[in-house]
Design a protein around this nucleic acid. Structure first.
Lengths: 337, 337
DNA sequence: CCACAGACTGGAAGCGCTTCCAGTCCTCCG
DNA sequence: CGGAGGACTGGAAGCGCTTCCAGTCTGTGG
């Protein structure tokens, strides 16, 4: 039963007074730290209940120098990048892991200049205990910001350039290679690739995997045909590819969205999938299963990506020094190849 | 050029000292408050630059009693509800509006018991300046929590039961009515509905709109056939419906996911869409355009929903008293009906 | 019976910033 | 030329919590 508190928001002092102990003891009791007798511990608990006391996180943060929050910043020059269900899954994973460490999640969409400025402030001012950075592009203005950060930073997906100290990534090269090898194993020899943006490491790595597999099989890799990870860009790339190389018999798309776009173009062009052209995607998002025909694709553990990023960050905040992590991918065969 | 600061993290005191002013003046200069001469203002600015000073948000929060953050909490008993791209769009809208008010976004996925506990703490302890609540179900444990909140709370979508003081919602009834009327106008007379969860207000309202339209046209509304807003549940509901009423010629699905599921079942059952059966969805998410055939659906302004929620919250934090808002929907015709 | 660990305790000093308030210094008007 | 306003200024008191530290109070072994 709630009792009217003297103040709208009771403070630790009032709890201490009601419990008949000093503020120090009350504080220790609250954080169940040692050096508090059983009796006082209970008295404090009682007072807390009676007053409906909840510690003020801000004050605690100021005293402990820990905010109790971790930031997840999603870069990209356009906020709509966040509409990709990929991020939602990362968030679910990260959120669960942070919850275990009792950290809150601050989500920063750093698309605009203003947004980036705010992230910079946050990182330099210790507005959180740590940060996870995702979707950085080549020469992303957030890279120097990350270096200036006054807190640990974990990258989700390596940025282009030298690998950072801490990151979690997915085996993009291996996944792309496997996808391409699969197409080749199905007898495809003229396999094109619709790349993702080549100013992202994922985009590059997936093309590398494709090229490696093609070369290893003694086939000619197609030059990179760049899309921007969206469905329309995949459709457009497919159309261009078809015009240039009408004889192609396989396509590896750097993600499912573009794969779905490719399927649409192929359908409209009257090519049968997989009979005339086989298609493989990457990501294994819902769209892959919904596409027509359902898209064979490279599954990446997105949820785990978020979870491991968060865990790594928690370890760092705890003063440990975790090692980078690369998560495995796996081919999921459906009917498009 | 960065200069080594005396402390790893310079404080306002050091800035003041370097600028040769008192801390009060430095503080005022920083927040460009009045009563600071031009000269000192500049001196402070110079010192800030020289020291690379960034104010500590926590200390500021403690002093001002404003955290500078707003919480967006997504209820639901299963974290995977968040995978619905709907939320990503809300976030993009809310994030942009919060950015304008210079508030950070804390994202709380309150699916687990533990998660709810943390939300409760956050709301009762003033861990943020305000909160936006979404996806509450009937008798959601978060409703009482919201009432105890020591901060303004805006609801995204009315919860079941009495309307809260502040909310932003979409015209679910009107949208559903329009969708149903459209089906009827296309000559459909045996129109079934695949409802969303009826323990949500959106689920109920959309069924109400459907029923209203049917009755107004002198047709018999089907009893509610409940799904849970996912694609498989839509497919299952469609199968059940087909078994029960093989003669149906129209289906209104309470969202696009279920609409897509219905399309799949219809295709597998050999029914032609829209020739044999017309289908209309709700949401106008990407899946609607990607479905086969592309889904006619009720567009709801999801981005605006997030934006307006955030704006309303900002107004409340500023001490204003905004009025609830209901956003209009609009029918988007594609080829499924 | 006394000295001494060791468990408790509470006073006090912060954490870094805002803001009230009493004072100082000008300037301008009557 | 005196005094009333104003514009500035900086000292000091918080915001609510943690934590160091010196002191108190046990109980125990010698």
């Amino acid at each position: 039963m709630a009792v009217d508190a003297p103040h709208p928001q009771p403070t630790l002092d009032e709890v201490a007074e009601l419990a008949g102990v000093s503020r120090s003891v009350a504080s220790r009791a609250l954080n169940n730290a040692p050096h508090v007798s059983r009796a006082k511990r209970e008295a404090v608990a009682r007072a807390v209940r009676q007053l409906g006391y909840v510690p003020n996180p801000t004050a605690r943060a100021l005293a402990t120098r820990h905010t109790g929050a971790a930031a997840l910043v999603v870069a990209g020059e356009d906020p709509s990048i966040f509409a990709d269900p990929f991020f939602a899954q990362v968030i679910v994973g990260a959120s669960a892991a942070l919850e275990e460490a009792d950290l809150h999640l601050m989500l920063c969409l750093a698309a605009s200049d203003r947004g980036r400025k705010r992230v910079e402030r946050l990182l330099r001012a210790k507005g959180a205990d740590g940060a996870m950075l995702m979707a950085l592009r080549e020469d992303d203005p957030l890279v120097p910001v990350a270096e200036q950060a006054k807190m640990p930073v974990v990258f989700g997906g390596r940025p282009v350039g030298p690998a950072p100290r801490w990151y979690v990534d997915v085996d993009n090269v291996g996944g792309a290679r496997e996808a391409t090898e699969y197409l080749i194993s199905r007898g495809r020899t003229r396999v094109a690739m619709i790349c993702g943006r080549l100013d992202t490491e994922a985009g590059r790595a997936r093309y590398r995997g494709y090229r490696d597999a093609m070369l290893a099989a003694g086939l000619d890799p197609f030059p990179p045909r760049e899309g921007d990870f969206t469905e329309p860009s995949g459709a457009a790339a497919m159309a261009a590819l078809l015009a240039e190389r009408p004889d192609l018999d396989g396509v590896f798309a750097a993600n499912d969205n573009m794969g779905a776009g490719a399927l649409r173009t192929l359908r409209e062009a009257g090519r049968r999938v997989p009979d005339d052209v086989s298609v493989v995607g990457f990501d294994d998002l819902a769209v892959a299963g919904l596409a027509d025909p359902p898209l064979t694709t490279v599954h990446q553990p997105i949820n785990a990506l978020g979870r491991e990023m968060a865990r790594m960050l928690v370890a760092l905040v705890d003063g440990q020094d975790p090692t980078p992590l690369i998560l495995p991918t796996r081919l999921v065969t459906r009917s498009s190849a």
